[in-house]
Nucleic acid binder design. Structure first.
Length: 925
RNA sequence: GGGCGAGUAGCUCAGUUGGUUAGAGCGCCUGCCUUACACGCAGGAUGUCGGGGGUUCGAGUCCCUCCUCGCCCACCA
């Protein structure tokens, strides 16, 4: 193949738009992303399985930067493990998202002037199914554009028939084990969504409210004696059934057992004593509203008080269960906040409003629509969480599961320890209907895996529970349900459960992650994964979370179109420290994404150089090269490659715990993706492109063996660089890799995506020495460039003398080695009698060396010698400068550089002398 | 109210166990269209590492304290 043809194949400009789609289609067509159960070691195969279950996005959602970040991270990890030889599986899926999806359809209906009740349940569900079928799941299509290497054959959906079986099974099993029960208590109620919420779905936010001090006249007193109560939710007073004081509060002791008159409702209610009351807060008197406050509910239970409900589900005032006619006619149907205003005004008029003061407090809001949540007494289904939490807590405590970054581990533990029972029933229509039937005739409650048509006892007709299950009750099963549970012998479940990493944002640690861990133990008796990786949030430059509604979002597909998926991925990975937020500028995509694109372009051009110069003829294997054949540069770049591989591996860490538990040294050290990206980038750009590739220019193309050596080494180094970068920038690396000349001893895979992950290769010759010597050469080159720049010397002019004398001196390497050795050591002297004559140096890598005392003393002398060499260097620089000045050049930066260097060096010398002196003093000379 | 994180160059951020002259990208300045790359190359400037105190031969890193911002948790009406 001729050079021109190859250049033709590799256009001067990399065009991601033209290549990415085709590359992706070839991967899919070749089944590169498909995992094979039979290859898993757990299923008789020869590979370790490595599995990530995708946090299922809402089925109606479209790709935003948050997804872009989340899925890029997962893809980087899964591609790394795929190359490392694991049977890698990434399971994609979507969540039916009960409330969120129902809200969308309700909004559509509202636009048509209708409510879901106008349609009826069946038609509403049909319509939603239709909507999901038409527009749902497009996010999974979009994920392909950013290169997500999911096994699309296993795409899951929480409301699919398979997963619905799992949901039912889980419900029935927990019910059989006594862990699901029907409870009558105060729950969080969203008056807009018309459903109950779990504790986690009712989110706190600090708000400025008003504390109203209201006087309740004491019954039977003539002169309007009263008890004053402080409340922020004045409207709930209509549901008051008592006033409570602390039993030991002397101010009120004689009032206990008496009655007060509830204003507006004009009902007599008792004054009771309960420990729950804090005498120090407000007036020390609390109104008890059992149906509309969880604490008051508990008080109500203890004192066997009635529990009148004074609000309708939609948040308007109404006489509900046990309310009689507490709500006066003029307030019936009035919204709760309006009612609050009116009641306050009424009390003001009757002079029963004693004080009004601003009061900051936390108010719970619906996590889907932000409506203020109303505590409300109702019947709901609950999961008893304590028995489920026990193993889930233990798993994180004992290192079966690690949480990265570490700080979230404490948050998880704290939350798990204080977990309350989980309300799983929702008064919605979109979701898994609760598998409970009630006999119309004998009132029997039937919990069943299959649909029930008649009572199994009396044959009476049955009706199914109206409620659906919390969305999270299906997604908490995702790691098991997507793999075939409840069939415990299903091949995917056997081969791939437990999974490995779970990658998500901290905001759903409690809502989802913790519950998956509980489900894993409850149904499979094993943790669902061993690593929870929590990444940050995507924010704009004002650190505001990106969102469509705020208009500060970036559409990942726009970025893909303008900069390419690789640029998007690189930016996301390189810009994100462990657990840190990712800040991007929605108004300046160029600033955010150009570095990634530029890096891709750099690689593209390296590829063009390589194809033009190395050509497509097969190259030799580097393993067969002898050290006598390798130049200093060859040895150096191979050494740098090894170092880079080690750096990348260290940043990525151990993929899985060795014996079921994380070893302390691995537990918090892995998945430092930005460091991985930086190590690879540094190598490719600063080492290969800036230095090594330049050294091959005079070699490749010449006749003789050295040209072949350079071809082999350059190709090898670039090949391995592409491998290291593939998880981050899969498209361009695959494209370039496909065109690399093949090594003579070739067992190359068809795709880079499944090519082996690099291992360090031993370099022929003395690697350390060669690297030091080449570094010296680089130092010399840099020094010359600096002089050139300072004196504005034209590119053509040579300054040979300096290079040579510098290279011969070997000053920098020796100096570096010396300072390095002492610098990293902590000296412990005379720790034991046998140590008396030696200094014990503990190096920072944990290894220890014994330095004979004489050696330490020599170090001090050595410092003096170095100072001499430094002076020699200065002299050389000075004479060079003089010569240049004589030739008519003038320095543009007559640098005090040497001067400051000497100062710093002297400082270090002093320090070393101090240490040495101390050593001598301690050891008695 | 409790807990956690952050504050490092103009901007966005790295900096594992204290140790060679605190780094990267972008931006900025100077010079280069040097036949892979101007989405580039070479050179350069910019930091009291939030303030103060302490431990140490040595602190961005450890301890104390204060300030600013952010996050999580929370049944004080």
């Amino acid at each position: 193949m001729s050079t021109t043809q190859e250049l033709h194949e590799l256009p001067a400009q990399y065009d991601p738009g033209q290549t990415e789609r085709a590359v992706y289609e070839r991967w899919v067509a070749a089944g590169v992303f498909s995992a094979d159960e039979t290859r898993s070691k757990r299923n008789g195969g020869d590979r370790d399985p490595f599995v990530i279950i995708m946090p299922p996005p809402n089925v109606t959602s479209v790709l935003h930067m948050g997804h872009g970040l989340n899925n890029t991270v997962q893809d980087v990890i899964v591609r790394w493990r795929r190359m490392a030889g694991d049977e890698a599986l990434w399971v994609p899926g979507t969540d039916h998202a009960g409330i969120a999806t129902q809200n969308i359809i309700e909004k559509q209906l509202a636009a048509e002037g209708k409510t879901r009740f106008d349609l009826g349940r069946e038609a509403f569900v049909e319509r939603t199914i239709g909507f999901v079928r038409q527009t749902g799941g497009q996010i999974l299509q979009q994920l392909r554009a950013i290169g997500a290497s999911c096994d699309w054959n296993r795409t899951a959906y929480t409301l699919s028939p398979e997963l619905s079986i799992a949901v039912r099974e889980a419900f029935v099993q927990l019910h059989e084990r006594g862990l699901i029960y029907r409870g009558h208590r105060v729950i969080h109620w969203c008056s807009r969504c018309l459903t109950s919420l779990s504790d986690e779905e009712a989110e706190h936010s600090e708000e400025m409210g008003t504390l109203y001090h209201i006087a309740y006249p004491i019954a039977g007193t003539k002169d309007k004696e009263s008890l004053v109560v402080a409340t922020t939710r004045a409207e709930t007073m209509l549901g008051d059934v008592a006033l409570a004081v602390h039993p030991d509060d002397e101010r009120y002791t004689d009032l206990i057992g008496k009655s007060v008159l509830l204003p507006i409702a004009n009902i007599e209610i008792p004054v009771i004593a309960d420990d729950y009351v804090d005498p120090a807060f407000g007036t020390g008197v609390v109104k008890i509203t059992p149906a509309h406050d969880p604490n008051d509910f508990e008080v109500g239970l203890r004192h066997k008080l009635p529990m009148p409900v004074i609000m309708a589900p939609d948040g308007t005032m109404a006489n509900g269960v046990d309310a009689g006619s507490r709500v006066p006619p003029e307030l019936l149907g009035v919204d709760r906040f309006e009612a609050r205003e009116r009641i306050v005004r009424t009390l003001e008029k009757s002079r029963q409003l004693k004080k009004v003061e601003p009061h900051q407090h936390a108010v719970r809001h619906c996590y889907r629509c932000d409506t203020v949540v109303e505590p409300r007494l109702s019947d709901q289904w609950f999961v008893k969480t304590e028995p489920l939490a026990r193993p889930a807590l233990q798993a994180v405590r004992d290192g079966t599961i690690r949480v990265l970054p570490k700080r979230w581990e404490a948050a998880y533990i704290h939350w798990m320890e204080n977990l309350r029972d989980w309300n799983i029933s929702r008064q919605l229509w979109w979701g898994h209907r609760i598998p409970v039937w009630y006999c119309e005739k004998c009132n029997r409650q039937i919990v069943s895996r299959t649909d029930v048509t008649a009572c199994d006892k009396c044959g009476g007709s049955v009706r199914q529970d109206e409620d659906v299950l919390d969305t999270w009750f299906s997604s908490w099963l995702f790691p098991i349900s997507t793999l075939g549970w409840p069939d415990k012998s299903a091949a995917p479940l056997v081969a791939f459960y437990p999974t490995d990493d779970l990658v998500t944002a901290p905001e759903i640690l409690y809502l989802w992650v913790s519950r998956m861990i509980m489900a894993g133990y409850a149904f499979m008796d094993a943790a669902p994964f061993h690593t929870v990786y929590l990444h940050g949030t995507v924010r704009d430059t004002n650190h505001v979370k990106m969102s469509k509604s705020l208009g500060n979002g970036i559409d990942p597909l726009d970025v893909v179109a303008s900069y390419g998926a690789d640029a998007l991925r690189y930016t996301v990975i390189a810009g994100m420290g462990m657990g840190a937020d990712l800040v991007l500028d929605p108004k300046d995509l160029e600033r955010s994404f150009a570095p990634g694109r530029n890096f891709a372009t750099k690689m593209w051009n390296m590829g063009r150089f390589l194809l033009t110069n190395v050509g497509s003829a097969p190259v030799g294997s580097v393993d067969e090269l002898r050290d006598t054949e390798l130049t200093l540069a060859d040895q150096w770049i191979l050494g740098r490659l090894n170092a880079t591989i080690s750096e990348c591996d260290a940043a990525l860490g151990t993929a899985r715990p060795a014996d079921g538990n994380w070893a302390p040294e691995d537990r918090y050290s892995g998945l430092r993706l930005s460091e991985f990206a930086e190590a690879a980038r540094r190598f490719v750009w600063n080492d290969v492109a800036d230095w090594y590739l330049e050294t091959t220019k005079g070699r490749i193309g010449t006749d003789g063996a050295d040209s072949e050596v350079a071809r082999a080494v350059l190709t090898h180094v670039f090949d391995y660089a592409l491998r290291l970068l593939h998880p981050i920038m899969p498209f361009i690396t695959e494209t370039l890799w496909q065109r690399l000349p093949s090594p003579l001893a070739a067992d190359r895979s068809e795709f880079l995506a499944i090519a082996p992950w690099p291992l360090p290769h031993p370099v022929a010759g003395n690697e350390t020495d060669a690297m030091a010597r080449f570094d010296l050469a680089r130092e010399a080159v840099s020094a010359v460039r600096q002089i050139r720049s300072d004196y504005a010397i034209p590119p053509g002019k040579l300054i040979e003398a300096f290079v040579q004398s510098r290279a011969n001196g070997g000053l920098f390497t020796d100096q570096a080695r010396l300072i390095g050795q002492l610098g990293r050591a902590t000296l412990k002297v005379g720790a034991s009698p046998t140590d008396a004559a030696a200094a014990h140096a503990v190096l920072t890598d944990g290894s220890e060396v014994i330095v004979p005392l004489a050696g330490v003393v020599d170090l001090a002398k050595e410092c003096g010698k170095l100072r001499g060499e430094l002076e020699q260097l200065e002299a050389q620089l000075e004479s060079l400068s003089k010569r240049l000045r004589n030739e008519g050049f003038t320095s543009r930066a007559p640098a005090a550089v040497v001067d400051s260097e000497r100062k710093k060096e002297e400082e270090w010398t002093k320090r070393r002398e101090l240490i040495a002196a101390k050593v001598i003093a301690l050891c008695g000379g």
